[in-house]
């Protein structure tokens, strides 16, 4: 069948809301786009373990320590399912990890911001996971079957993380003036980077139009960002925290919040590698990878010896 005809049939199937499965024919661009997006998502889970992991040994109660450990563990699990989903497109985990460590592949820029106080752990759960959920709920309807199914599972766990994060900030905001200031400071630092998580405005987003046509993405960046703002602002008010945007105002006419301007220069700088923790995050991942090399080699060598002995 000629390629043009196959593409037309593919688009027809996608338009008819049929899921694309690993063995189905798909345009090369679709495959590449998905590998990029899914692996970027997997890398974000893995790098995302670092800022929160920074507070595991300092969590202020055994209850909080348990929840935080379980959360970071879930992220490792999400990384694994997402690498597996990417593998269905014909690329191995080792190659994907090499792309991350060489700096060729990207991960979510939000993880290049530092966790400076305990309240930041609350802010990550509430804002960062809150923003991620909005994107991921959309992705449960993405056209690629394995990605969509991974998202269904991940969303359930993320909503638990989101509630736990909010609970940390709620507890702090009911606490001493110092605790409340800690919570406000975390919101001040994490608010704008969380809005940047939805990516550039649709008119400046290089992959958006094609991704929408293939139904990899189902909603635009700006629309999702607005959903997040509308949902999150009342939550901040409920616990007595102030969103750091002087232009933020409820608009009766549109039934949405109006809000200020994202500093896109900061966004671009962080993507380029100039964020506060880009170098530290990559150094930590490279160190774990390099220090673990002898462990992985030993596991392989032992498995080979065992196979040989079993065969003999």
């Amino acid at each position: 069948m000629p390629e043009k005809k196959q593409e037309a049939l593919f688009q027809q199937a996608v338009d008819g809301e049929q899921k694309v499965e690993p063995r189905d024919w798909m345009p090369e661009g679709y495959r590449k786009n998905l590998i990029r997006q899914i692996s970027q998502h997997a890398h974000s889970e893995v790098v995302g373990m670092l800022p929160e992991g920074n507070w595991i040994t300092r969590a202020p109660s055994l209850h909080r320590k348990t929840i935080l450990l379980a959360k970071v563990q879930d992220e490792a699990g999400h990384g694994l399912y997402l690498y597996s989903a990417a593998e269905t497109l014909g690329i191995g985990r080792d190659e994907l990890i090499d792309q991350l460590l060489s700096g060729k592949a990207k991960y979510s820029s939000i993880f290049n911001y530092p966790t400076l106080t305990w309240a930041d752990i609350g802010a990550i759960g509430w804002l960062v996971d809150g923003a991620a959920i909005i994107n991921q709920v959309m992705l449960t309807r993405t056209s690629y079957g394995p990605y969509s199914r991974a998202m269904v599972r991940i969303c359930k766990e993320e909503s638990f993380h989101n509630r736990q994060g909010y609970d940390i900030l709620m507890t702090l905001s009911k606490g001493t003036p110092e605790q409340k200031a800690m919570a406000q400071d975390a919101l001040d630092r994490w608010w704008w980077p969380s809005l940047m998580m939805f990516g550039p405005s649709d008119k400046d987003s290089p992959h958006s139009a094609q991704s929408m046509q293939w139904k990899i993405k189902r909603q635009g960046n700006d629309e999702l960002r607005q959903v997040f703002i509308d949902r999150t602002v009342p939550q901040a008010e409920f616990i007595g925290l102030k969103v750091p945007d002087p232009k933020l105002k409820w608009n009766e006419q549109t039934q949405h919040y109006d809000w200020g301007e994202i500093n896109w220069e900061e966004f671009n700088q962080v993507i380029k590698g100039n964020g506060p923790c880009n170098a530290e995050r990559m150094a930590a991942r490279r160190k774990a990878h390099d220090d673990g090399a002898w462990v992985r080699e030993a596991a392989l060598a032992h498995a080979e010896k065992k196979n040989k002995r079993n065969a003999a």
Binding site: L69, A76, A288, G292, V295
Partner: peptide, 9 residues
């Protein structure tokens, strides 16, 4: 946590 030799670990 976050620094192990492989994600499984």
């Amino acid at each position: 946590c976050g620094h192990a030799p492989a994600l499984e670990e």
